[in-house]
Design a protein around this nucleic acid. Structure first.
Lengths: 216, 216
DNA sequence: TCTTGTGAAATGCTTCACAGCA
DNA sequence: TGCTGTGAAGCATTTCACAAGA
């Protein structure tokens, strides 16, 4: 996992990248209400330290005014540009079962920058239906649809046995970023980024923090 | 976030805790097939370095045999005990919408150590139904049901406005560990552990890794 | 000989502390 | 005076390198 991006851009640590969307969320609450925001105020609202916030901003050539703070709108625009959210990103959800459907519905309704434009499923009963107006295609058409719609990002919610195959197909068709909910370690070329969310692993590690187990 | 647990136990770093379930998964594939496993083999299958694995095991007083490796069954038992998975953990899913239902179904079917024994929802149309045989209760009954069933862990999948209130109620009733899917920063007492999974944030940070944005 | 177990070095991230500027 | 910007210090985690034991 490297924070390196296309030539010329500063290298941003992965930890910072993960905080950027949080800043965006807070900034959008602030936007309209105030023009400037201090790192102290952002610290208050995000839970990060103010120094950390300033360091984060410095990674992409910050622009605060000493004694005043940062311009909300400028900051928003910059962070969105860093993340590549300054133009819509077409995304796919692969697997239209319970989880896939829920994730698709959630993403379609929540996020306007990342646009879920297609779902895929192997089950003929699901193919042809739609989720919030987005069509479910047969998985075998994935390469064609991905290319046609310029899909660059995919949410994987298929059974573990099927995951590697759909990722391989998607990668060949040009997808470079995956959010994987399947409980398997996926293989992919270096330039492909895979972010895993594994519910079983999360729950099991969470178990460690269940305290005072001696109680009833 | 501290790795500290009940008195007497060694302090295990959070990073290690998050790897333990991965070891469990790999070990369960191995179990039956072989009695011993080397750190190199585990490295191969997990993607972690062998030194890291040995360090992790050392945190809970490892027990390998030089020249041979670790006993699979012993390792399994130890890790399960560290995580508190040596007895079933009753859990709740709060919010029986699309996501909550999908998560509940997934957990019920996948995980036998963490048992989802109740769902909660405010919508009267959902209350009284069941998901894979697990009842949906009205949210107002949460305190009573949590106490009655000894629930120690909760998956939160309610709208953001409702999240803090259900967490407060659950904490008062004795829940100490949460997996939160609501896109809000939840407040809770020190002894309560909250693990967040925020789909929007994940997708937005993922956008950073979509490469070669200049293409079509 | 093979693999564990572990101090020591390296890395990466966060916090400290304060100089610098509006 | 207030807040940014940033080197330096501090921590946490990972990797290195190798001694020790079956």
């Amino acid at each position: 996992m490297v924070g390196l991006r296309h030539a010329g851009n500063p290298r941003i640590p992965d930890t910072t990248v993960r905080r950027l969307p949080v800043y965006l969320r807070v900034l959008s609450e602030l936007s309209g209400r105030q023009q400037e925001v201090t790192s102290a105020e952002l610290a208050e609202r995000t839970g990060y330290s103010s120094e950390q916030i300033r360091k984060d901003f410095a990674y992409f050539g910050a622009l605060g005014t000493r004694g005043v703070g940062y311009r909300v709108d400028l900051l928003q625009r910059q962070i969105r540009s860093i993340l590549g959210l300054d133009r819509p990103i077409p995304a796919a959800v692969i697997g239209a079962g319970n989880l896939g459907t829920a994730l698709a519905r959630y993403s379609i309704l929540q996020d306007r920058d990342i646009q879920v434009v297609a779902l895929f499923d192997v089950d003929p009963r699901r193919v042809g239906t739609d989720i919030e107006g987005v069509k479910v295609y047969p998985t075998e058409e994935l390469p064609a649809v991905v290319r046609q719609l310029g899909i660059r990002m995919a949410i994987v919610a298929v059974p573990p046995e099927a995951a590697q195959a759909v990722v391989d197909a998607a990668v060949r068709a040009g997808v470079t970023a995956f959010l994987n909910f399947s409980p398997v370690k996926l293989q992919a070329p270096r330039h492909v980024h895979i972010q895993n969310i594994d519910l079983s692993l999360e729950l099991q590690s969470l178990a460690y923090y269940v305290s005072a187990r001696s109680l009833p």
